[in-house]
Design a protein around this nucleic acid. Structure first.
Lengths: 134, 134
DNA sequence: CATAACTACGACTTAATCAGTCCTATATTG
DNA sequence: CAATATAGGACTGATTAAGTCGTAGTTATG
């Protein structure tokens, strides 16, 4: 309940690992997986998403790897979650997907009231940057 | 991701329904289920938990039902979630269950850094009361 | 130019959790 | 004692998360 997924956890661990080392340095997925004791295949996909979204720079081929594309203080946790999960973190699905996916959309009595809570969560996740969780 | 469960949603809807009517009034599970357009059996269990935890007063038997045991402004969302889920809302399992349930507890590099975020979430959920989501 | 060391990406399997249903017991009223 | 509630255990099905596998494409280097 309200928990981060393993993918997000692994992603944060990897990003933290990179942020703790001199900027510009490149790391392979395998190296990070070993260091963070995390399943390689899963981590690899997470890194691919982060790279595709422009949060990481990737270099293919031998001597390739990943490197942070932004300064840690510019990297919001909300953005990291959004990229990895492919959707913004929402406390209830209708905020993300609208009425089409909610069978009681019209009769739902808490959608509007919960908007405040959602807003506060947004602020919290936007204000938390990678730098703060190093 | 970071979403409330249906049980919590239904619980909040039911509590809101009660809070919007004169205090002291009793409601049956069936009545609330119909009004909120929510599965009766599931809702019934949620109400039982809330009552067992002292957030609701229950009266059994014919002409029975549930009533709020506290004022809406005394009912924290964090408490409601905790009762329904039977655990405090945590962004990562180790905060709730400790090292026994986490295979990488020792090597986990983000547990301590994330404590700030967890703390901020706690504050948010504690400061949001039922009154505010009416 | 072949090979080793990488990223990229889709398909698949398994595990875990959540949502929902059903059944029975117990309490209370009239 | 019949009707209407809460109480609660057991079960099934649906959905999602987690993890695995296979393969293709890219690049440095001997």
């Amino acid at each position: 309940m309200l928990q981060l997924s393993k993918k997000v956890e692994y992603g944060l661990m990897a990003l933290r690992h990179m942020a703790m080392n001199p900027s510009g340095q490149f790391f392979t997925a395998k190296e990070i997986a070993v260091r963070c004791d995390v399943p390689y295949e899963l981590l690899a996909k997470v890194l691919q998403k982060l790279s595709k979204a422009g949060l990481l720079i990737s270099i293919q081929g031998m001597r390739g790897g990943y490197s942070l594309a932004r300064r840690p203080d510019e990297l919001q946790v909300s953005k990291i979650i959004q990229v990895i999960e492919e959707e913004k973190p929402t406390i209830t699905e209708c905020y993300a997907e609208g009425m089409d996916n909610c069978s009681i959309y019209d009769s739902c009595t808490i959608r509007r009231p919960l908007e405040k809570m959602q807003h506060n969560l947004n602020v919290l996740l936007e204000n938390t940057t990678l730098e703060q969780i190093i």
